[in-house]
Amino acid sequence: MDQQRERFTPMKSYVPFRGLFDPCPPIGEKYYSTPPNLYVGFQSPNLEQFTPQEALRKGTLWKVFYDYYDNPYKRGGDSGHG
């Protein structure tokens, strides 16, 4: 269970197929987002909450649904995501 939690990442990546005559330099890893709403199912009661002030800034009251996003290609394309 803990191992599974460690492996969870809201950002996945793959290396696109490279043809012999592709004109552009390879992008390396291609990223796509898999936010928590894809995994949670019907929300169960008594989940952890942000404080009301935090919730208004973050856009959700529930910690489980919070997913910070930043451009994954910014740091040379490798930000350690699985």
């Binding site: 928590p36 199912g41 019907f42 973050k58 856009g59 959700t60 649904f65 997913d67 910070y68 996003y69």
Partner: peptide
């Protein structure tokens, strides 16, 4: 924009629950 993106996630979650 991050705030608006987070709201899309929550809305998607609620629509998924509506289906359930």
């Amino acid at each position: 924009l991050r705030y608006l993106r987070e709201r899309e996630i929550v809305h998607s979650q609620r629509f998924r629950e509506a289906v359930e």
